[in-house]
Amino acid sequence: MATVNATSSSAGRLLGSLRLPIGIVAFLGISLTVLGIDQFVNALTLGAIYALVALGYTMVYGIIELINFAHGDVFMVGSFVAMFISSSLLGNEGAITNIPLLAGSVLVLFALTIGVMAIVGALIERLAYRPLRRAPRLAPLITAIGVSFILQNVIQFFFGPTIVTVPQLVPIEWSIEVSGSRVPLLNIFVIAASVALMFALQLFISRTRTGRAMRTTSMDRDASSLMGVDINRTIMITFLIGSGLAGAAGVVHGLYYGNTSFNLGFQSGLKAFTAAVLGGIGNTAGAALGGFLIAFIEVGASAFGYGRWGGAVVFSLLVIFLVFRPTGLLGSHSGDRA
């Protein structure tokens, strides 16, 4: 009897664990047919940006239950850091056609931007949030809004209030043919790099000691410190990683759109935050999924001529979805304590 139960439940578990990948593949297949290859690639690229930013929202919320409203602006600052690095360090001549040089430049661009933004994020945590660790929850929320304005003003002061051009390192004309359509190599690279970062994050969280400390801290901070976890250090690392990923999103944004502006963080930040809620706040895989889903909805809306309604469509669907599933796509169903 027990064996029968065990086999049937393990089969059930296998089916349960396959439901998500099957769902994703089906969703991608349908989107590809409906949108066509151009819009499909477009949505994937936009989704990669949303997903990378959403990860920072969800990680920070998971660990200190703070909606870090400044996170969208961290992404914005990342796009400026990327712009600054590619125009001043790597030369302003535009596209690089020498492949090894291009690969090296892009690698340097990613590494430097991620590094700078990780430090910026950790500094924000140290200066603006840690002193309020034991304050009522509204206090850090207001601080986050303050940090958001500060970041916007600082960037506006240095780079002005208008749209700023980002040098295009990757030649636009490089592309491959997929069933009659031209798919720029840039997009493929950008999507691959983002997905690789997301997988690296999942591995880090599930396999490393620090990753385990992050998970237990988000489940129960006191119990976690009784295990010997340094809570302040763990929270700082969470900000380091989240902001680094936002930096990567900033690089991707610059490479893809070729421009940025000081108020970039507001709209995209809001969408990325929505993605995190849609995926189940606190859940990293959910945030990534949510990011892609929102991008597909948005691109889909404009493909059908409702581009101006993109935001309205996204948020209407979000409301409807949350009514039926308040914990989000992959959020936990019940409370933590038995």
Binding site: M219, D222, A223, S225, M227, I231, S332, D336
Partner: peptide, 21 residues
């Protein structure tokens, strides 16, 4: 707290506080 654990104090807290997931 995390240093005190290292010094040899174990604490099974009120309400058990196991990591439920």
């Amino acid at each position: 707290a995390h240093e005190i654990v290292r010094l040899g104090v174990g604490h099974s807290p009120e309400g058990r506080r196991v990591f439920s997931r």
